[in-house]
Structure formats: structure tokens, C-alpha cells
Design a protein around this nucleic acid. Structure first.
Lengths: 216, 216
DNA sequence: GTCAGGCACTGACCAATGGTCATTTTGGCC
DNA sequence: GGCCAAAATGACCATTGGTCAGTGCCTGAC
């Protein structure tokens, strides 16, 4: 029986090693340009072996993304812990998520794909379930922040926390999308905008919209 | 010389015919799943011919997107024309864009790809320049709405119109992304949210944040 | 009328790449 | 040493975006 347990440990370790290789490659080239052959080379395995640990490329990417966002959650919690009010906590959730995506831009790309994928996605695999659950946790922090703000008076009391948490998170996605690609977008759009300030403007706007009392 | 002119007309017409075929296919399956062979079949041409009219698949998609957003601009202008105030005009810009993406969800997917593409994109082709210019026009309508609101008192005067127009537009992107995929997302996220109201909540929040005077 | 030149078009072909599976290797157990 | 199951392999396949040498029709000159 001890053999079975060791085998299971080795299996988990190998899976992690594959994810290590994929994560490093992904950080450089992104999920789209990630090549399964390259992952196999980097992990010193044959390509066929990858498919013993992951159903397909999507699930491998989901595994990478799930680990990344899993590492983010403690950071988010630490950053929220110092909040002076519920409204401040909500700000910190948004700021933390933005900082996380700046450090892991490829992860954000994966999130966009995941959100847009519609029915075409192999849900149900372990990696995807893990990813989904962690996204839910992040969202929950926004809900808690709003509820706290309604209790301490920093957030309007005539709104429902959960739908507004989703609104906060959704709108932040769009703003982050612009922020991550601001160099190329500012070249493309025939309008001279400083895209550096968009995130800050948005967080301020959200705070103003949520705020229980008037505030400059 | 008359021959050269007729040839040019025929060339434009054929290009439009290719775009017609691609647009119809795209509406069904999206840009990702669009197959160049299928476009060629639908246009009753060989695949090689497509590449005489478009540099690559990306540019063909950009051509479809540029036509779609070109058709949208008059609708946007009509909808904004009835606005009672600058703030109302800003709302209408957001509402119109949302309605447009609901009718042309695949176009929105293209926009996301375009925004995320970074350097990997063959800019400079005619289709892309046309697309970019029209996106700029839509953005300009948001700028004008904010300026009008600052003059009629419906929008705060301590903000810069252009950066805030970008903030409005960016955040709307994220909200629309969720709205377009709400069915699959609500199944995936381990939280029971009614995603139907997110767009309305967001537009209200934006109006509140922009508003010159306090309003419920 | 006819013939050369050129233009639009063709479709067989190529390269890249995600995924498969028959076969080989490994390692534990008797 | 022999046997078996699990793990791993890598040659192979199917799909698909893109290419290019070749075909044929139209035109304008003579």
C-alpha cells in the first residue's frame, strides 16, 4: 500500500513540474503562443505524457492560471486587512487585482478567454473547477467589503452587495484590459489620451458611486 | 481608361462580396472558428483569391468589423440626438454600444482580440486603419457628451472629458463582456448572481459618478 | 482577325501544431 | 528470472492558415 501512496505523491509532483514548465513559458509568450512541444521539452517529457496529466491544452493553461490566482488570494487578504473602512476595503480589492494582473498579464489573458469561451469549454476538469472556485473567492472579498461599508456608513445602504460586487469586478476587467495594452492601444486609437490614469480614474469613479456620503 | 475604372469597381464589389460571405459566417461561428476555406466556398471563390483582397485572416476579420461598426455609428448618433442633457447623452452612448454588441456579439469578440493583440497585429492594412478610425469616432461621441454635460450642469466640471470618456468606454467593455457571456458564466461561478442587471447597475453607477448634482 | 501581355483566379501543396495510440520501458512482486 | 500494470514514448494524424506556379480570359495593338 505504501507504494500506491508514493506513486500518488510522485504523480502530483510530476503534475506540478509540468505546471512549472508551462508557467515559465507562458509568462514569456502567453497562453495562445504556448506550444505543447515546448512544454514537453521544458518539462523533459514527451508530448504524449502531458496528455496523461491534462486532458488538453486548455486544461493545462487552466492549471497554471489556478495556481497563479491561488497565490494571489493571500496577498489580496493581506492588503484588505489594513483597510480603514468598507469603502477602503473595496478600493483595495480593486487595486490588488489590478496589481496582480500587472505582474501576471498572461493570467489576465487567460481569464478573458475563460469568460468569453461560452459553451466551447471543457468544464468539469479538475483544473477548471479549481480556477472557478478561486475566482469566486476573490469576488467574495468584494462582497464582504461592500457589506462592511454598509455597516460602517462608508457605502450606500440602498444597494445589494453581491450584484454590485459583480459590477465592480466586471468594470474593472475592462479597465485592466486597456491598462495592460495601453502602449499599443494609444498608438492605434486616433485620439491623444494618456492611458496611464484610466485605472485610477475608474477606481475613484467607483468609490464615488458607492460612497454613502458626498466626498471629493 | 474606362476599363480601369470598371475594373476598380469590380474589385471593390468583389471585396464587398467576400466581406458579405465572411460576415454571415462570422455571425454564426465567430471569428476564431471562421475558416478561410468556408469563406472561399461561400463567396464562390478559391482560397487563394481571398489573399488577393486581404493580407491574412486577421485583416479579413478587421474588414468585417469595420463595416459593422461603420453601420453602428449612424444609429449611435440618432440615439444621442434625442438626449435631454449631456449626462443623458453619455448614458445613451453607453446604452447604444451595449445594444450594438448584443446584436453583434461576434464583433465585440473581435474588439477584445484587437485590444489585447499587443504588437502581434498587422496594423497598417486598410481594414485595420478603417476600424481604428471608427472606434475613435465612437469614443469622440462620449467626449462630446461629457463636454455638453459640463456646459449644461449635468456633469461635474472638475474632470477632463477625454480621459473620463476612455474610462467610461473601458469599464463598459468589461461589463459587456460579462453580459454577453452571462449564461455560461453564471454556471461557472460558484456564486448565485443575477447577471442580467449588471449592465444597468453599471450605467447607473457611471451616471452617479459623473453627475454634477446629487441624484438618487 | 489575331496575337502578345497582363490580370484575376485557381487549387494542389506546404508548414505548423494540437492531439492520439501502438509500442517500449520501468519497477514492484512472486 | 518471469510476469504484469503503470508510465512514458514518439511517430503519426487531422486540421487549417497561407503560398505559388500554372491557367485562362480580356484587352488593346496591329
Amino acid at each position: 500500500m505504501a507504494v500506491a501512496e508514493r506513486r500518488e505523491r510522485e504523480r502530483v509532483a510530476r503534475r506540478e513540474a509540468i505546471l512549472d514548465a508551462a508557467e515559465e513559458l507562458t509568462a514569456n509568450v502567453g497562453y495562445e503562443a504556448l506550444r505543447m512541444d515546448a512544454v514537453a521539452d521544458a518539462a523533459e517529457l514527451s508530448k504524449g505524457t502531458l496528455y496523461l496529466y491534462f486532458q488538453n491544452k486548455q486544461e493545462l493553461c487552466a492549471g497554471v492560471a489556478a495556481r497563479l490566482i491561488g497565490d494571489f488570494i493571500p496577498l489580496l487578504e493581506a492588503h484588505v486587512a489594513d483597510a480603514r473602512s468598507g469603502l477602503d476595503a473595496a478600493r483595495r480589492v480593486l487595486e490588488s487585482y489590478c496589481e496582480f494582473t500587472r505582474e501576471n498579464p498572461q493570467h489576465f489573458r487567460f481569464a478573458l478567454t475563460w469568460l468569453s469561451a461560452g459553451e466551447k469549454l471543457d468544464d468539469g476538469t479538475e483544473a477548471f473547477r479549481s480556477y472557478q472556485q478561486r475566482v469566486g473567492e476573490v469576488l467574495q472579498h468584494a462582497v464582504v467589503a461592500i457589506e462592511r461599508g454598509q455597516q460602517d456608513g462608508s457605502v450606500r445602504t440602498d444597494i445589494e452587495p453581491l450584484p454590485h460586487a459583480v459590477q465592480l469586478w466586471s468594470s474593472m476587467l475592462g479597465v485592466i484590459l486597456i491598462d495592460l495594452n495601453k502602449e499599443s492601444i494609444s498608438q492605434r486609437i486616433p485620439v491623444p489620451v494618456d492611458l496611464d490614469q484610466v485605472v485610477d480614474l475608474h477606481i475613484d469613479a467607483m468609490a464615488r458611486a458607492l460612497g454613502g456620503k458626498e466626498q471629493a
